[in-house]
Computed example of a mutant assay.
Amino acid sequence: MAATANSARVFLAVDPPQEWEESLTILGAYGSLAAAQYAVRQHRTRPPYVLETWRTTQVQEWVGDELRTTWTYSPHAGWKTEG
């Protein structure tokens, strides 16, 4: 079903699968991009993410059941926009 003007808009902070045995983990749902990005940066200061600097974390913008944009955060490269 396509998103409409009345569809819910949410920003999900997620830890995407980065190894073959992992699955996507939702870290939180937020009403704004700024809040979600802040939460991702705060999450990155907790173990095991402090020790695993190679891992990336994402913020996904969903409108209804459509994934609109993904922002990927890497401690070394900062934020990168996809989609």
Rank of each mutant, 00 (worst) to 15 (best):
residue 18 Q to D: 00
residue 58 Q to L: 03
residue 25 T to H: 10
residue 81 T to H: 03
residue 82 E to D: 05
residue 52 E to I: 05
residue 2 A to S: 12
residue 27 L to H: 04
residue 73 Y to R: 02
residue 79 W to D: 04
residue 71 W to E: 01
residue 52 E to M: 07
residue 56 T to N: 01
residue 8 A to V: 15
residue 41 R to E: 12
residue 77 A to E: 10
residue 24 L to V: 13
residue 3 A to I: 10
residue 57 T to G: 04
residue 22 E to G: 06
residue 64 G to M: 05
residue 75 P to W: 03
residue 47 P to A: 12
residue 31 G to I: 07
residue 12 L to E: 11
residue 64 G to Y: 05
residue 13 A to I: 13
residue 28 G to S: 04
residue 20 W to Y: 14
residue 18 Q to L: 00
residue 11 F to N: 03
residue 65 D to S: 09
residue 26 I to H: 09
residue 55 R to Q: 00
residue 36 A to S: 08
residue 35 A to F: 04
residue 35 A to S: 10
residue 79 W to V: 08
residue 28 G to E: 06
residue 47 P to Q: 09
residue 64 G to Q: 03
residue 28 G to A: 04
residue 20 W to P: 12
residue 16 P to K: 00
residue 75 P to D: 08
residue 52 E to V: 03
residue 73 Y to A: 03
residue 44 R to Q: 14
residue 16 P to T: 00
residue 7 S to C: 09
residue 25 T to Q: 11
residue 72 T to E: 10
residue 82 E to N: 09
residue 35 A to I: 05
residue 75 P to S: 02
residue 8 A to L: 15
residue 65 D to H: 07
residue 42 Q to V: 13
residue 9 R to E: 03
residue 11 F to Q: 05
residue 68 R to Q: 15
residue 19 E to W: 13
residue 80 K to A: 13
residue 77 A to N: 05
residue 26 I to T: 15
residue 22 E to I: 13
residue 24 L to M: 14
residue 77 A to Y: 07
residue 19 E to K: 11
residue 75 P to N: 02
residue 23 S to I: 15
residue 71 W to S: 06
residue 37 Q to C: 11
residue 47 P to Y: 08
residue 36 A to H: 07
residue 72 T to I: 05
residue 29 A to D: 11
residue 78 G to Y: 13
residue 52 E to S: 04
residue 62 W to I: 03
residue 20 W to V: 15
residue 4 T to C: 07
residue 69 T to V: 15
residue 17 P to A: 04
residue 19 E to T: 15
residue 16 P to S: 00
residue 66 E to H: 05
residue 18 Q to Y: 00
residue 79 W to L: 06
residue 82 E to A: 10
residue 29 A to R: 11
residue 61 E to L: 04
residue 2 A to I: 12
residue 24 L to I: 15
residue 24 L to D: 12
residue 72 T to G: 01
residue 32 S to V: 05
residue 57 T to M: 10
residue 47 P to L: 07
residue 61 E to T: 02
residue 10 V to M: 10
residue 75 P to I: 10
residue 22 E to K: 02
residue 65 D to R: 02
residue 24 L to E: 15
residue 6 N to W: 10
residue 3 A to G: 13
residue 5 A to W: 04
residue 43 H to S: 13
residue 11 F to W: 15
residue 19 E to S: 14
residue 68 R to S: 12
residue 61 E to F: 06
residue 10 V to W: 13
residue 71 W to K: 00
residue 42 Q to S: 15
residue 55 R to F: 02
residue 27 L to Q: 03
residue 57 T to I: 09
residue 36 A to T: 08
residue 34 A to P: 06
residue 22 E to V: 14
residue 80 K to F: 11
residue 54 W to P: 01
residue 47 P to D: 09
residue 69 T to G: 05
residue 1 M to R: 02
residue 48 P to I: 08
residue 61 E to I: 02
residue 74 S to A: 10
residue 71 W to M: 04
residue 33 L to R: 07
residue 67 L to H: 04
residue 76 H to V: 14
residue 38 Y to T: 14
residue 40 V to E: 11
residue 23 S to K: 09
residue 7 S to N: 11
residue 39 A to W: 08
residue 64 G to T: 08
residue 47 P to N: 05
